[in-house]
C-alpha cells in the first residue's frame, strides 16, 4: 500500500512545501512532519510529506548484510567472498555518482 516517492524540498511555504522529484518534476505537498527545511530529502505519499530520509542511516542496512555474511562465514567459509565483491560494488556505486 501507500506508494511513496522520494523528493527534495525546494521551498517551504507554511503548511505546504514545493518538492522536486528529480528531472524538473516538481509538485507541492502538505507538510506532514514536525519540520522540514529546504534541501531535506523526504518521502511523499499522495500529496503529503510523511517522513524525512536520513542521510546518516542511508547505508545502515548494508551493515545488516555484513552481519549476515559474517554469520554465514562462520557456518560456511565460502560466504566471505560475497562480502568482498559487495564492498567493491558499493564503492563503485557510491563514487560513480555525479
Amino acid at each position: 500500500m501507500c506508494l511513496g516517492v522520494y523528493g527534495k524540498v525546494l521551498r517551504v511555504e507554511g503548511e505546504l512545501a514545493v518538492v522536486d522529484f528529480g528531472g524538473g518534476l516538481t509538485r507541492d505537498a502538505l507538510v506532514g512532519v514536525e519540520e522540514v527545511r529546504e534541501g531535506d530529502y523526504v518521502v511523499v505519499h499522495a500529496g503529503i510529506i510523511v517522513s524525512r530520509l536520513s542521510e546518516e542511516e542511508f547505508e545502515e542496512v548494508f551493515r545488516y548484510v555484513e552481519e549476515a555474511v559474517k554469520q554465514l562465514a562462520m557456518i560456511e567459509s565460502r560466504a566471505a567472498e560475497y562480502l568482498e565483491s559487495m564492498k567493491m560494488r558499493l564503492e563503485e556505486n557510491l563514487s560513480g555518482q555525479k
Binding site: 506508494l3 516517492v5 522529484f21 528529480g22 528531472g23 524538473g24 518534476l25
Partner: peptide, 13 residues
Amino acid sequence: IREPVVNLCEMMG
C-alpha cells in the same frame, strides 16, 4: 527510458 519519465511513472504509478 529517460530519467524524468521513469520518475513521473513512479510517481503516478
